[in-house]
Amino acid sequence: MPACAIEEAIDIKGYVEIDPEECKGCGLCVAACVQKVLSLSPQLNRYGYHPATNEEKPCNGCGLCFYACPEPGAIRVFKAID
């Protein structure tokens, strides 16, 4: 599995990585995110969807968005391990 986009986690509990080309913009992850870090991007991906994005904001890595997402490979959730 490829490494996280953010190589070093300084004061970060967690991070969500969304593949914009895999996302269909259904918004279920946005609705599931209790920390409200996710939103739908104003950009369109190559399939014509507004993909979900965290705008590179960190989160607590709870993983709720992952289970809400219907695409097998659209979301990866990272959590800080001491």
């Binding site: 599995m1 289970y67 990866r76 959730v77």
Partner: peptide, 11 residues
């Protein structure tokens, strides 16, 4: 410094 570990990804 803590390390980020992937806890959920494509099965």
């Amino acid at each position: 410094m803590s390390e980020l570990k992937c806890i959920h990804g494509k099965a």
